[in-house]
Amino acid sequence: MSDLSGVHRSHSYYEASARGRLTHLLDAGSFRELLGPTERLTSPHLELLGQPCAFDDGIVIGRGRLDGRPVLVASQEGGFMGGAVGEVHGAKLTGLLELAVHEHPAAILLLLESGGVRLHEANAGLIAISEIIRALLAARAAGIPVIGLIGGIYGCFGGMGIVARCCDRLIINEEGRLGLSGPDVIETTMGVEEFDASDRALVWRTVGGKHRFLLGEVQQLVADDLAAFRTAVVEALGQPLQGLTLESLEREHQGLADRLANYGDCLDATEIWAALGLENPLQVPLLDIPTFLQVASQAGREGA
């Protein structure tokens, strides 16, 4: 590898591993893993099926510091079975969220990259995701901010797409994808006429970071650089908490009802962007991040 010392090198969030992301996101040297790989808590179900296991079952959890403040973190490894949630993987995340209620960190950071339920242990995985949701909402009810980060190769789908939208705030890069049923699942089940999963441009404008930001589902859109994610998290830590109150949920309810009323008949993201008042909706996918944010802001989409 060539020597790049002295040259600013950005570290792609998209390409980094679950562990690599934590190294660059948190204060240097601050990460302390909980139930790390030496504990060998691997999936008994995968073993039964003769499938390769991972020593951390595809999720890294622990304590760290961000800008000096104590945080709890979880980072899903998309490379291992698409980040899918099995019994152990899910229990690690649920346990972390429960630990937060005792420790009261400044925030819980969830680096989400997952296709949802791990189909090799489907029943246990589905229940595990439900347990994650309950533990996450209990942590929020205890007044702990939960911040989700999305931007990996495998996106954030299935039950973890619901988990993501249970967070207080989400930070995404342009490459990040967030949804419920992945395009390939829809294509396989409903046919290519419903969703052509091989049409990358269509996929990105339907579930990609820019569209999610414009809809107001994620609060911050950043460049694909771990330093940018770090800056965004620090900024998010300064934001007021979204309580789980009747008032906040009624506000959310109204927003979702309006979205359905206004854009429920749109056939493509570009129609929604036009309705939002973006001048050249067809150009949106081509804009670099600063220009995009400027255009979005002019149309009244501030994210946060």
Binding site: A18, R19, G36, P37, T38, C53, A54, F55, D56, G79
Partner: peptide
């Protein structure tokens, strides 16, 4: 995690290696 390192990811065409004292 004590004196141990883990490198690589268990993904298609790849592997993870853990070294412990």
């Amino acid at each position: 995690m004590g004196k141990a390192v883990l490198v690589g990811v268990v993904t298609s065409g790849n592997l993870e290696v853990m070294v412990e004292r």
